[in-house]
């Protein structure tokens, strides 16, 4: 039977909502599911993880050096914790993408990136070419399978469980070659882009950060998170953490608005799993209309304020 170690992630002192999706992937693989949480003090998030359905145990790995998440210090500890497990799963977040390959290399295995489906304990679907080709891969079972999970592909498990929480210690000497300097986190009262049911994204057409207010105001009216195309981020209209796409955030909201976004393949890679896509673009030939469920051809600076007034 598989024994699956899920590496949890903590953001702002809370369990990252993506962990419940990684557990869903672990359930699809089938087997015993243990969640490990690294940090300086992880009591709160550990209690949250213990409630996730299907989890049999939560390991708290508390060490002063774990106060800042660093792949260089986390990876050797995860390698130590991984002994005896058949799978080590990470969320497909910037943390997981940074850390998992370091663990895989130490274990001497290729990593399975962005698992979309687990057909069995060793067979997985994953996206390549910006999601334009899905490959089914068979991974060697031994010594272990290391994977990141594409969060947009899974529905979070419920939280009616009550797993045991245990402390685990790691004895690995940690490197000092990597030091945390600072974090410039974007504070926002808006819903989280990766968890929101509704997302409104703006593109190059917005033209300036001032004009992006049109997007924020509409998003706030309908309670949506705000995203952006690469062009909007590159042009400095919005911060980098708002980029949606192949190399940004992959999202799966119920409702997605692409406003003044042309629909390049790299952008579409991030929204393929949205339930309903609405496109607003003044160019009737824009490729975004080929994937939109509802398209409206028009100038966003007229259409969006009107829309805001009518919803």
């Amino acid at each position: 039977m598989s024994k699956i170690l899920v590496i949890g992630e903590i953001a702002d002192g809370k369990l990252n909502a993506g962990v419940a999706k990684v557990v869903a992937c672990a359930q699809q693989i089938g087997g015993e599911i243990v969640v490990a949480l690294l940090g300086a003090d992880v009591a709160g998030p550990a209690a949250e993880a213990a409630k996730l359905d299907g989890v049999s145990k939560v390991l708290k790995v508390e060490r002063a050096e774990n106060a800042h998440i660093l792949a260089a210090t986390y990876a050797p500890q995860i390698v130590e914790l991984a002994a005896g497990y058949s799978h080590v799963l990470f969320p497909g977040t910037s943390f997981g993408k940074d850390t998992a390959p370091r663990v895989a290399a130490k274990l001497g295995v290729q990593q399975v990136s962005d698992v979309m489906v687990a057909h069995s304990a060793t067979s997985f679907d994953r996206p390549t070419y910006a999601g334009n080709a899905i490959v089914t891969v068979e991974a060697p079972a031994a010594p272990a399978i290391v994977a990141t999970v594409r969060l947009a592909s899974f529905t979070a498990v419920g939280s009616s469980g009550s797993a045991a929480v245990e402390s685990a210690s790691t004895s690995t000497a940690l490197p000092t070659h990597t030091r945390f300097v600072s974090m410039e986190a974007q504070k926002s009262e808006r819903p989280d882009l990766q968890a929101a049911a509704k997302v409104v994204s703006g593109g190059r057409a917005l033209g300036s950060s001032e004009n992006f207010k049109v997007i924020y105001d509409f998003a706030d009216k309908i309670g949506a998170a705000v995203g952006a195309s690469r062009a909007a981020v590159d042009s400095g209209y919005v911060p980098n953490d708002m980029q949606v796409g192949q190399t940004g955030k992959i999202i799966a909201p119920e409702l997605y608005f692409a406003i003044g976004i042309s629909g390049a393949i790299q952008h579409l890679a991030g929204i393929k799993d949205a339930r309903t896509i609405v496109a607003i673009n003044k160019d009737a030939e824009a490729p975004i209309f080929e994937v939109a469920d509802f398209g409206l051809v028009g100038d966003l600076f007229q259409v969006v304020p009107e829309l805001q007034g009518k919803v």
Binding site: S123, P127, G131, N132, A133, I134, V135, T136, V137, E138, K272, I277, A284, F289, E290, V291, A292, D293, F294, G295, L296, V297
Partner: peptide, 16 residues
């Protein structure tokens, strides 16, 4: 790699 497949195609919607 045991198989390569195209992603499910999103059907074209309507223009309002």
């Amino acid at each position: 790699t045991t198989k390569t497949s195209a992603p499910p195609k999103r059907s074209k919607g309507i223009v309002v």
